[in-house]
Nucleic acid binder design. Structure first.
Lengths: 241, 241
DNA sequence: CCTTAGGTGCGCACACTGTGCGCGTCATGG
DNA sequence: CCATGACGCGCACAGTGTGCGCACCTAAGG
């Protein structure tokens, strides 16, 4: 096989030092996130992940019980990227909520696989990062004037909106990414066919044309629009209390 | 092997008639939905599906190109279960939107795997049932007084809320189902530990206790609460137009 | 110093997945 | 009656998660 290595044989062997800190749960989780960001959820396999760490597949099982457990760790890790400002009182709650929503959406667009994973694993994990963020986020609405039980519902409502919106955006973006085009190219490729298909629905046609110019800006605006409506609804309720 | 059949040997053979209508795309999709409802998304394999239809795994590929295509068909099929009332004008839009939201949520709780699948496949499919429902649903908001482009955003907002909420509920419910308990048993099992873990966060503690009595009713109420807030937000915007 | 013990990486193996290929059987139309 | 096309299926291949046991390497105890 390896002719060059044959001369030094077994005696003068490489004496491999502990150059790498070897393997650790943290390393594995970090590399899994890198792989997920690059290739998506269905491309994550223990063997590929092991290869990235210069390790065999089964070595990972010394530090991680399951692939499922690995995914729980990975999900909680990205929850740690969220930035939730401290509650802004009765005047500042809207900015705080807007910032949190933006942070959550940005995280899910940075890691488009999170939406797919959440559908499967739900919030079963309840890791430390997620629960810390939930506590802070709930505090925002308690500071705004909602009683504790209701603040929980308000937080769930807003989270559901952001999650639903960002999941759909992320799925769309990764579909495009797999085709190797940019978002704009994809749209200008597909638009004629879509217009043809929805010829009988002028309202849909109009919406399609409006969205064809700068897709990313339009997505930002649609997200902000819905967010504003939801927060308006919260304000209505606050005025009743 | 079969002693009874041996006597008639090969000559007087059964002459099997076309007793079953064999295989068809519709049959396959229907049986796939049954299997998904029973065992969840990660238990769906072409071999198991084939076995349910008294067929080999690869026979399915005569009627369905991919597993992915099968899933697209399956998703559009369940979208066909939605009931979207015709637009109710400027007064009836709220009831129409509420009914549609309830129908979508009920569908996703009947088929808890839909949430997981939507995260992966997004709305790529755009099958006939989905596009029909979207058109009708958008009509509700146009009738309510929103201009066409904005009606699209309003519909997306509401859909995102329902999707996010129902996905999280469905993931929770299938987690429970896998444990073989009822929702109430699970909660009374887990509650002491959860209270212990969140001892330092009295607000979370309070929320936990409030939700421990009748879980399914509480979920209904939380969903209705968030829905009311979102619709309130729409109303605020309508009053500005 | 040598010996023992425990933690770590890895090759192998098993059961299972999606799916392409080519064969045999059947219903149908000329 | 024969040819044609559609259909079901067994086989095979590459790839998956993961349990098992071996080989090492580092640290403690005599």
């Amino acid at each position: 096989m390896s002719d060059k290595q044959a001369v030094q044989s077994v005696w003068t062997r490489p004496r491999k030092k502990k150059e790498q800190p070897a393997l650790s749960a943290g390393q594995i989780v970090a590399e899994a996130i890198a792989l997920l960001d690059a290739d998506g959820i269905e491309q994550l396999s223990m063997r590929k992940l092991g290869a990235r760490l210069n390790a065999g597949a089964t070595s990972l099982y010394r530090h991680v019980a399951n692939k499922d457990e690995l995914i729980e760790l990975v999900v909680d890790e990205v929850y740690g990227e969220l930035e939730v400002p401290a509650g802004g009182g009765r005047e500042g709650w809207r900015e705080a909520a807007t910032a949190t929503a933006a942070s959550l959406r940005a995280m899910m667009l940075r890691h488009p696989w999170v939406g797919a994973v959440l559908g499967q694993v739900g919030l079963k994990s309840l890791g430390p990062n997620l629960s810390r963020m939930s506590t802070r986020f709930m505090g925002v609405f308690q500071d705004a004037g909602f009683p504790a039980a209701e603040a929980d519902q308000v937080m769930n409502t807003l989270t559901a909106y952001v999650l639903g919106m960002a999941t759909s955006e992320a799925a769309w973006l990764s579909l495009i990414a797999r085709s190797g085009m940019t978002e704009r190219e994809w749209i200008s490729d597909v638009l004629p066919g879509a217009l043809e298909a929805s010829r009988e629905h002028p309202a849909i046609n109009e919406a399609l044309l409006a969205n064809s110019s700068d897709p990313s800006a339009i997505r930002d605006e649609t997200f902000a629009y819905g967010l504003a409506r939801v927060l308006d609804g919260f304000q209505v309720r606050l005025d009743q209390l």
